[in-house]
Design a protein around this nucleic acid. Structure first.
Length: 493
RNA sequence: GGCCCGUUGGUCAAGAGGUUAAGACGGGGGCCUCUCACGCCCCAAACAUGGGUUCGAUUCCCGUACGGGUCACCA
């Protein structure tokens, strides 16, 4: 193959040979599926791993499915995730434009070239019933397939509506290579004469993809495995146009269960839904990377840059992977624990403020006790319902066998500790902790005998984020003493 | 239905013609501990199935089952 002359076709000067170029080519549907995000991530990783270029191309040839604002969501998601692109509608580049409807005039000449070469033909057929319900109508039988050139010209001049279809050979078979699935061979008779140029003059996805990928110098075509069965037709197209065939990387889908893909329709969360639920971008990206791909070795925590470094496309899995919210939650919790306390405090504050309105309570202190026990930000508010006001509670909470407390012991503990706390020279965690520990030691018992009752009195809850010491500290001396008094009153009642 | 692809514990998955078949999540148990968590330790849990090839297959080949994809003037 004379790749050096045909490969870039008028573009040798603009794209360095040997450069790895990949593209993410979403159609603007209004949100980012988890599967799409993963495809974008793998595509980005392939380019970055090789020091190549990553492009963004918007595939909007379906006029009937435009969603306003959809492109912005794509930009925002890619930006948030760190999937920066080198070329695209917003940043330009040498092979633009990067929006297919803005390239509308570039496709027809290539389709006509295929017609001239006998690899495609004008079809004047009406849409047929059988076609519309996707029956077993064999396109190989299309009466337009072998129309005499004169007749074609006559009909075109008469203004008859037409489409251009790919002319698949009746005989033989086609073998294509996929980086993940290997060589796949199919009989040409099983391939249909797909439409290349639609009646509205716009190319179909299948055709626009081939033309654009070539014109943009794409070396690795990454996409979902639903395109696997079209791949032999792509090969025929590339060959018909005399173009070098790129490397195909078909990725199996991300599933919601064993039977169906993740989808908005079924209520599965999109990327933006996950973020709204309190998942961190890095956790989502990290988790999703491992859904259908695995690194060498046992490590599973990676920054996006680290992913790019170690990414090996040949370790992408052939079988579909089921999305597991529990494992994502585990990753999220791990990322939260690893955050710098200030960063976590900043991320958690809005969620803390949903439950804690009292301005005297320091959200940073609350964040500190929350951080090790928060799996996702959205479960923060429920943990904080006792801060603003002490809830009504049952004194049964004071009975705890492991801490060796009952109502009488608790009352005794509270009565002893309250004056000491009132007298503390400073209200710090260290001072409060020492105060309670000292008392326990004097009583010759475990800390629990003092701290359990205090924690109950101060929170009214059996389960709290943080222990007695932290809670007292956060609530402040005055409120702490007020709640301890309240607790003693309840125990005496 | 035709064609194509896939199948290792509940989930994500490593792995190689000969292994006690990794690891992680989840589950169970324990330790730690002022609760819940965190952390640490331990445990249970898998090669879909039938034939080959082979001294030996979970690993290679064929069939079967099951699952998925595709068969649009949607992407």
């Amino acid at each position: 193959m004379t790749a050096d002359t045909v490969w870039f076709e008028n573009m040798e000067a603009r794209i360095p040979r040997g450069q790895v170029r990949t593209r993410f080519a979403p159609s603007p549907t209004g949100y980012m599926h988890v599967g799409n995000l993963r495809t974008a991530l793998y595509t980005w990783c392939i380019a970055r791993h090789a020091g190549g270029r990553f492009l963004l191309r918007i595939e909007d040839t379906d006029q009937t499915r435009q969603v306003e604002g959809a492109v912005e969501i794509i930009y925002k998601t890619l930006r948030d995730c760190g999937l920066d692109h080198d070329e695209g509608p917003d940043v330009g580049g040498p092979v633009g434009p990067y929006v297919q409807t803005e390239r509308r005039d570039t496709y027809l000449p290539y389709a006509q070239r295929l017609v001239e070469r006998g690899c495609a033909y004008y079809c004047f057929c009406e849409k047929t019933e059988s076609e519309e319900d996707a029956g077993d109508f064999s396109r190989g039988d299309d009466p337009c397939r072998d129309l005499p050139q004169e007749e074609v010209r006559r009909r075109l001049e008469a203004g008859l509506p037409w489409v251009i279809r790919q002319k698949i050979p009746h005989q033989g078979e086609t073998t294509f290579h996929d980086e993940i699935f290997g060589d796949i061979t199919v009989p040409n008779a099983d391939l249909d004469d797909q439409v290349l140029i639609k009646r509205d003059g716009l190319p179909t996805y299948n055709f626009a993809n081939v033309v654009d990928d070539h014109l943009m110098g794409i070396t690795h075509v990454v996409r979902g495995s639903e395109y696997l069965s079209s791949a032999p037709k792509y090969d025929l197209l590339y060959r018909g146009l005399g173009w070098e065939i790129p490397r195909y990387v078909h990725c199996s889908p991300v599933m919601r269960d064993a039977h169906s893909k993740m989808s908005k329709r079924h209520g599965d969360p999109s990327y933006e839904d996950l973020i709204a639920q309190g998942f961190l971008t890095q956790a989502v990206v990290n988790y999703v990377a491992l859904l259908g791909w695995s690194p060498e070795g046992e490590r599973e925590f990676f920054t996006i840059q680290e992913l790019a470094e170690v990414f090996d496309l040949h370790r992408i899995s052939r079988s579909p992977a089921i999305f597991d919210l529990e494992k994502l939650t585990y990753f999220n919790a791990a990322y939260i624990k690893a955050m710098a306390p200030e960063d976590f405090a900043r991320a958690a504050e809005p969620w803390i403020r949903r439950a804690v309105k009292n301005p005297a309570l320091d959200p940073a202190l609350i964040a500190a006790i929350l951080q090790p026990r928060t799996e996702k930000l959205s479960d923060i508010p429920d943990k904080l319902d006792f801060f603003d006001a002490l809830p009504d509670y049952d004194t049964e909470l004071y009975v705890h066998k492991k801490s060796k407390t009952d109502r009488a012991v608790s009352l005794d503990a509270l009565e002893r500790v309250t004056p000491r706390l009132r007298a503390l020279p400073v209200w710090t965690e260290e001072a409060i902790g020492a105060c309670m520990a000292d008392l326990a030691q004097e009583l010759g018992c475990k800390n629990a005998r003092v701290m359990w009752p205090v924690r109950i009195a101060v929170s009214g809850r059996a389960v709290t984020p943080g222990g007695a010491v932290e809670l007292c500290h956060i609530l402040g001396r005055e409120e702490t003493l007020r709640r301890l008094e309240d607790g003693m009153a309840r125990l005496r009642a």
